[in-house]
């Protein structure tokens, strides 16, 4: 992120949920921060019995717009086919060598109510319950997460005490059949 922040005109997409602390954190470091609350759109889509794709269908970002995308644990709330469809869009939006941040919960641990990750002091992330959002959970093992992201290579991954895993991916290639 430090390098991204130094790059003139660098663009980052935060897919939500809308947490003031996160927006301020990114906006102070990245030249152009794009914010769109996909979690809320998904909540509304599923509540209205609409397919999950309606959560991101309205997004019309240009090709290769973003140097980085923070997806948080959004994939955990999509079944496999929906997740793959979203990743196709992300592959269009992200620049070659662009970075993708993904979080995933431990499928072997008991499922907690919906929470978001809030950036707090000293760059710590704190899980923060969001009672207004109700979303299904499809937590996956490492391999299943990787399988959702063809064309991305894993740069770093971390596992935390509460079982949440964080992955940092880099987009390596665009395959014509997947774009």
């Amino acid at each position: 992120m430090e390098r991204m922040g130094e790059r003139q005109g660098a663009c980052l997409l935060d897919v939500g949920p809308i947490l003031g602390a996160n927006i301020v954190f990114f906006a102070r470091r990245i030249p152009r921060l794009f914010v769109c609350d996909l979690f809320r759109h998904l909540h509304e889509a599923l509540g209205g019995k609409r397919p999950p794709d309606t959560a991101w269908r309205h997004l019309e970002y240009p090709l290769k717009q973003f140097d980085g995308i923070v997806l948080w644990d959004f994939l955990d709330h999509l079944e496999k086919e929906g997740a793959l469809r979203l990743i196709r869009h992300i592959r269009r939006w992200i620049k070659p060598k662009g970075m993708l941040v993904v979080f995933s919960r431990d499928p072997d641990r008991s499922l907690e109510p919906f929470f978001a990750f809030e950036v707090q002091k000293e760059f710590r992330l704190h899980p923060r319950p969001i009672p207004r959002l109700s979303l299904p959970l499809y937590p996956r093992q490492n391999r299943a997460v990787m399988a959702l992201l063809p064309g991305f290579s894993s740069i770093k991954s971390f596992i935390y005490r509460n079982g949440v895993r964080e992955y940092l991916f880099r987009f390596e290639k665009t395959e014509p059949d997947m774009s």
Partner: peptide, 15 residues
Amino acid sequence: ISVEDGAFLKAVIEL
């Protein structure tokens, strides 16, 4: 900028 949690926001922000 300051943003309260839960606001509906689809934005591009430059500080």
